[in-house]
Design a protein around this nucleic acid. Sequence first.
DNA 1: CAGTGGATAGAAAGCGCTTGCTGCCAGGTT
DNA 2: AACCTGGCAGCAAGCGCTTTCTATCCACTG
Lengths: 348, 348
Amino acid sequence: MTVTLADVAARAQVSPATVSRVLNGNYPVAASTRERVLKAVDELDYVLNGPASSLAAATSDLVGILVNDIADPFFGIIASAIQSEIGGPGGRAGGERLAVVCNTGGSPERELTYLTLLQRQRAAAVVLTGGAVEEGPQAAAIAAKLRKLADAGTRVVLCGRPPAPDTRAIALTFDNRGGARQLTEHLIGLGHRRLGYIAGPEERTTTRHRLEGHREALAAAGVEEDPRWTVHGRYDRRSGYEATLELLRRDPTLTAVVAANDSVALGACAALRESGMRIPEDVSVAGFDDLPFSVDAVPSLTTVRLPLADAGARAGRIAMSREDPPPGGIATIRGELMVRGSSGVPRG
Amino acid sequence: MTVTLADVAARAQVSPATVSRVLNGNYPVAASTRERVLKAVDELDYVLNGPASSLAAATSDLVGILVNDIADPFFGIIASAIQSEIGGPGGRAGGERLAVVCNTGGSPERELTYLTLLQRQRAAAVVLTGGAVEEGPQAAAIAAKLRKLADAGTRVVLCGRPPAPDTRAIALTFDNRGGARQLTEHLIGLGHRRLGYIAGPEERTTTRHRLEGHREALAAAGVEEDPRWTVHGRYDRRSGYEATLELLRRDPTLTAVVAANDSVALGACAALRESGMRIPEDVSVAGFDDLPFSVDAVPSLTTVRLPLADAGARAGRIAMSREDPPPGGIATIRGELMVRGSSGVPRG
DNA sequence: CAGTGGATAGAAAGCGCTTGCTGCCAGGTT
DNA sequence: AACCTGGCAGCAAGCGCTTTCTATCCACTG
C-alpha cells in the first residue's frame, strides 16, 4: 500500500488535519509540530494524493495549454513561456502547477474534446493559443464551453487568438492585420507591384487577418490584385514549397512572395531557388512571426516579429492571477517589421 | 453548484452506480437504461469529476512527458508523436488520456520535482525524453523516483535517453555514438584532418556519446586531435555561433566544424559566413538530428537523421501498453547519415 | 410449479484529503 | 480569582465517484 496522510499523522502523533495543514501551509501550526510532521513525511517518503486533494479542496493545480502543433516552434515558444510563469518547479514556491499541453492539430473537435477533458480535471486555468476557426457548429460549441469553464472558476486566457465575445475570456491578440499590412507596405515601398500571397488554411482567423492586412496595404497603395496571386495552404514548409510552385505556374512574373508565416516562407525560398530564381534579386520573400531560424535563412528572412515569449509569459501570469488582465479583457499585441535580406528592389 | 453523478441519476431515475457504469461501459447495462442515462447526461450537460473519479478508481488518465525544452523542435516532434499515440482526442475511443508536457530545462532538480508532481497525480505513465544528466546526487534521486513510480504502477518509458539500470524503465535509446562516428567518418573520408567540435553541455549523456563517437572515428582513422578543437556550449543556435567564433580564434585553419546538433550547426554557419568563410568550400559544417529546417539551410545541412517521430510514437504506444517493450526493455535506435551541401572536400 | 441461473440494478462502504467547528490551554485582564 | 482571548490541535463531515456485494426479476428447466 501507499503511504497516506493518516500514516504520517500516526507517526508524527498528530491528527490528519494537522498534517494536511502543515503540507498546505494555510493554517497556523506550531513550529515544533510542523517539524515533527515534516520529519514523518520525509521518513515515510510520503507523496500527497493529488486526486484526493483536488476532490476535497475542489480545486486542482492543472493548467491546460492548447496549441495547434507542439512540434511547431511558434507554439513551442509560447507554451514554454506560459509554463515558465505558471509556477511548477522553478516558479516561486507554493503554486506548483502542472501544465497540460494539448495538441489540437488545429481541429475544433479536438479542441472541444480537450476542453472537456480539462473541465473534467477541474483545471485551474486554460490558455488557448493560436488562431481560432471561425465557422462551423464547433465554433459556437467552443465558445459555450469556454463560458462554462469560466463559470466554473477556471480562468480562460486566449493568447494570439481573437477575443471570444461573451465568454469572459481574457484575450491577448496579435495584431496580425497590422503586421501584414506593414510588411506589404514595405514591399510596395521597394517597388513591388506583382505580389503573390501564400495564405494559411481558409477558415482560420489568423489566416484571414493576415490576408486582410496584405490586401489593405495593396488597396491603400492602389496596387491591383489578381485573385490568382493568392494561394491557400497549411502553415508548414511543405505547403509553402508547393504553393510557390503553383504561384510561379500561374504567373512567372511575380516579383515578391508574401508567406503566411516563416515556415511557409522557407518553403517558398526553396521552391524559388530550385526554379532558378535568386532571392531577392529575382523575387523577394517575406514571412511572418520571426521564429528563431528565420534570421539564419540565407538570405535572412524579412518578416514581422511577434513577441511570442512575452505574450506567452503574460498570458501565463494572467492565468495565474499574477498580473491584472488588460482593460476590457482585451489587449492587442503589435508585431515589429524586421527588414532583412530576403526583400529587395524588384528586378527590371 | 455543478452537476453531479447523483443529479444525473435522479433525472434518469436510476442509481448513481448505474450512471457510473454507463459512463465507464465496464458493466452490463440494459440498452433502454443506458439511453435514459445518456439522455440525462446530455440534458444536464454533465461532466465527470476527474479527481473524484481518479480517487475512487485509484487510477488516472494523465500521462507525463518530460522534455528539456518544449520550444526546441527536437522535443516538440517527439512530444507530438507521443501525444498522438497516447489516445486523447483522435486516438481510439476509451482511453482519453491527457498529456502533461513538462519543461525541465535540462535541470535534474526540476525533473525530479516534476516526477514528484506526476507521482502525486498518480500518472498512468511517464515518458522522459532527451539525454540524462549523469552526475550529481540528483541522478540517483531520479533513478530512485523512477523506481518508485514503476512500483506504483506507472509505466516509465525513456525516449532518446540511455537505459536507467534497476528502474524497470523501458528505454528507447538513440545511437548517438554510432551516428556521430558515421558523421565524422564521412568528413574524414572527404579528406578533413582538422575538425572542430562544438559539444553540448558537459554532463549530459547525449553530449558525451556524440563526442565519443566523434573521437572514435578520429582515432580509428588515426587522425590527431587537438584538445583546443573541442568547445562545449548549449544546444542552441547562439551557442553554436559563439563557439564557432571561439574555434576560429583558437585555430583558423580548421576545415570542418562538427556541431552537437542542427541548431548549433546553424549558428556555426552564421558565424563562419560572417567571418568571411564559404561553406563548404572553406569550412564544412555538420549537424545532428536532421530537424525539419536543416534541409532548408543554405547550403543544406549534412547531418544525422534521428527518427524522432517514430521513436516518440513507439514510446507512446509502449507507455500505453499497446506495443510490447523491446526484449530486455532496451532498444537502440540508429540514426541515418544525411550527406548534403554543407560538407565537401577541404580546401587546399 | 418450484427451482435455478443469468442479467441488471441498487445499497453502501469507502478512496484520501480538506476544512468548519469545537475544545483546550496558557497568558493576559478586570 | 474568575474571565477573556488567542493560538493550536482534533473531530468529523463531507468532496463525487467506483465497486463489491446483495437483491430482484425473468426466463427457463426438470
